[in-house]
């Protein structure tokens, strides 16, 4: 029989990793071999297995066979009502255009709409409309709000993706962040546009977040494309220390909630 004292006993965390067949603990074969000879560890593992098996009692209620059909039936009208791709997006995403232009095009197009709508609302809000004369319908405050929310929401999603990818990049001797760097660089001008719009609209919370985000994006955009491991860790630490990812998530969630309400209000009014 092997001498158990010569084998390192797996910690609780290591047993959990072993249970889920995840890397990060001692090699699986070593833990298996250890448990074959160590009764207390074997008992600990059995108890852990029993607890995790018991957690299986929480089952999602079964759905009917036509669940997918039902999901689709409810979804179709909402898809039809979902914001359609703009002409600008089509133009930038057309054949031959680089893939990168599609989101940039969308952002620029929406940005132009937002600023235009904002200026229209700011400088010509209360001009009397002559009776009986054909008028171009001004952009309503609600439509403006909705456009701004959609645009800012999408911008925050894109920024979030850049930050997530950067924070989760695998540390190596040299880390290539050229893709994230390029995307951050593309996001800076639109971020500035939304920040200014938010400031002017009195959206202080959103403006403050965009201000912080802009500094982070600029920092990423100004970093070299390839970073040594310590340089990368340093950048990652700075991004994490700012807590910007969390803040972006919170505001993104709030923006989407307002967007949803704005859409509901609009559809209620139009019906």
């Amino acid at each position: 029989m092997k001498d158990v004292r010569k084998v390192k006993h797996p910690s609780e965390e290591e047993l959990i990793l072993y249970h889920y067949a995840e890397a990060g603990g001692p090699p699986r074969a070593v833990v298996t071999e250890h448990m074959e000879v160590c009764e207390p560890c074997r008992t600990r593992y059995r108890e852990l297995q029993a607890v995790l098996a018991a957690a299986e009692v929480v089952e999602a209620p079964a759905r009917s066979e036509d669940f997918e059909d039902e999901v689709w039936r409810r979804l179709v009208p909402r898809l039809e009502a979902a914001p359609q791709e703009s002409l600008w997006q089509r133009f930038f995403a057309g054949p031959g255009a680089p893939r990168l232009w599609a989101p940039v095009g969308a952002v620029v197009a929406v940005g132009v709409l937002v600023v235009g709508a904002f200026l229209a609302g700011r400088f010509w809000p209360g001009q009397p409309q002559p009776q009986g004369e054909a008028q171009v319908q001004p952009v309503s405050a609600q439509s403006r709000e909705r456009i701004l929310l959609v645009a800012v929401g999408d911008h925050l999603e894109r920024s979030q993706m850049v930050l997530v990818e950067l924070v989760n990049a695998k540390p190596q001797r040299t880390v290539d962040i050229s893709a994230e760097r390029q995307r951050a660089e593309d996001l800076v001008p639109t971020n500035r546009l939304y920040r200014l719009t938010a400031e002017r609209s009195g959206e202080t919370g959103v403006a403050n977040l965009l201000d912080e985000l802009e500094r982070t994006l600029i920092e990423i955009a100004h970093s070299p494309s390839r970073l040594s491991s310590p340089e990368f860790e340093d950048l990652r630490r700075r991004v994490e220390a700012q807590g910007i990812l969390f803040k972006v998530r919170v505001v993104d969630s709030q923006v989407h909630e307002r967007e949803r309400k704005a859409i509901e209000d609009l559809s209620r009014k139009s019906s």
């Binding site: 965390e13 990060g24 029993a50 607890v51 018991a54 957690a55 989760n168 998530r249």
Partner: peptide, 27 residues
């Protein structure tokens, strides 16, 4: 949007809490 260590830590905490609450029943 978490690093591997933070993800593992979240899972440990959940399992620990389950063990604390369920172990008597399960054993």
């Amino acid at each position: 949007g978490l690093k591997g260590s933070a993800t593992k830590n979240s899972i440990y905490r959940a399992v620990q809490k389950l063990r604390k609450e369920l172990e008597p029943l399960v054993v």
